[in-house]
Design a protein around this nucleic acid. Structure first.
Length: 178
DNA sequence: ACTCTGATGTACT
DNA sequence: GTACATCAGAGTA
């Protein structure tokens, strides 16, 4: 697939896709889009050391540390565009996920949990998607629900959170989903 | 069910 | 010094 998309386009395309990370796999159920003109985006101030991979080639990972504790995984699109992977439906490697999480549930319903379950750390920052151990496979067309993003204060009303309609594997319900 | 708070790396004022 | 794309645990009800 081509990753050279705007963050909102890429965020919609990734809903229903399967993420493979070193033997663990899951279906992406929730994403958020961050564009360079978005005050809440790490790319908004321009390139820095931390966000360098956000301005690198499309189809690579941008991994950053959140609140000093967690790692969060993004897929880079066009320069300065990235999509935060917020939740997964676990498929394979669940035993490894439980081991890394230290509990049976919840495993992957939040960006920090998801990165921990899959063993993603800062060493994955800048890694290209497309190798046997680290890649994405698009799923069939999926019904998508849209809502405001979570956990931000700037541009909090922008409707740039995307979810797989009806999924049980979301960090939080969507306002419109019933 | 809910609210509050601690943990703590990196970037910014 | 302060803010932050978060989570888990403790407390209240």
């Amino acid at each position: 697939m081509s990753f050279a998309l705007s963050a909102p386009d890429l965020a919609r395309a990734l809903i229903g896709a399967t993420l493979h990370v070193r033997g663990c796999t899951g279906i992406i159920t929730e994403t958020e889009a961050y564009t360079p003109d978005d005050p809440a985006s790490h790319s908004f101030p321009g390139p820095t050391k931390r966000n360098a991979s956000m301005f690198g080639p499309p189809g690579h990972a941008y991994v950053y540390r959140s609140y000093g504790i967690h790692w969060c995984l993004n897929v880079v699109g066009l320069p300065g565009h990235a999509v935060l992977i917020r939740a997964l439906e676990p498929l394979d490697g669940i035993a490894a996920m439980i081991h890394r999480r230290g509990r049976a549930a919840p495993l992957t319903t939040g960006p920090g949990m998801l990165a921990q379950a899959l063993g993603i750390t800062g060493s994955d920052d800048g890694r290209p998607f497309g190798t046997a151990e680290f890649h994405l496979v698009l799923g069939p067309p999926t019904e998508i629900v849209i809502g405001p993003r979570i956990g931000i204060t700037k541009a909090a009303d922008w409707l740039r959170r995307y979810g797989k309609k009806g999924s049980k594997h979301l960090s939080r319900p969507f306002p419109s989903s019933v």
